[in-house]
Nucleic acid binder design. Sequence first.
DNA 1: TTGACATGCAAGTAACTGCTTGCATATAAT
DNA 2: ATTATATGCAAGCAGTTACTTGCATGTCAA
Lengths: 105, 105
Amino acid sequence: MSDPDLLFKALADPGRRKLMDRLHAHDGQTLGELCRHLDMTRQGVTQHLDVLEAANLVAVQWRGREKLHFLNPVPLQEIYDRWIRKFERPRLKALRDLKRRLEKD
Amino acid sequence: MSDPDLLFKALADPGRRKLMDRLHAHDGQTLGELCRHLDMTRQGVTQHLDVLEAANLVAVQWRGREKLHFLNPVPLQEIYDRWIRKFERPRLKALRDLKRRLEKD
DNA sequence: TTGACATGCAAGTAACTGCTTGCATATAAT
DNA sequence: ATTATATGCAAGCAGTTACTTGCATGTCAA
């Protein structure tokens, strides 16, 4: 199971989300390929990719001198299952709580 | 539509996520109630709640001198719909991409 | 009206983040 | 072998963040 803090932190940056979008559009790109389309230094991209990798959102595979990057969607699913979904259902309960609260007046 | 950056940034902090958990357990708590169970200064909690409110994850209602806090699960659903779900499906496509890439050798 | 209570506002600080620059290493191509 | 390419590593720096402390404001209750 991935560390939820690493995960949320990784998703918190728009540059990293864009990076994931580009990998989603075309998985398995090298660092250079990814840099070519982003308005950022290579080192900047590297650092973002490191964060994504630490969060287990991106997996890496070396081919010669090239580093291929692959998306791993599993942690996103985990976020949904363990975090987002539970905030979906209780709308009815929330309304009950609200009603109870307001009736205190 | 909520600003996705505010949203992800708001979720990036474990203290804020805990705060949302407590509101999920019991919606409509006052600032004081929330502070009582968190290991943080009142001002710290206030600032976190401000971030959550800016992200539209928490709504506020005043009752006299008390400030009631209510969870708004809608932005979470938006994150799922617009961001997480699209990374679910393409596992097959990702595998095809991977296969194609590796066959370059 | 006075005192207690719930919260707001503002400034200061330490840690973290994102980004850049410069140099180093390893693989491929000629 | 030499040169070009793909990437790594490390230090520095500005902006942001989370947190604290001190004081101010507004509401309720006796």
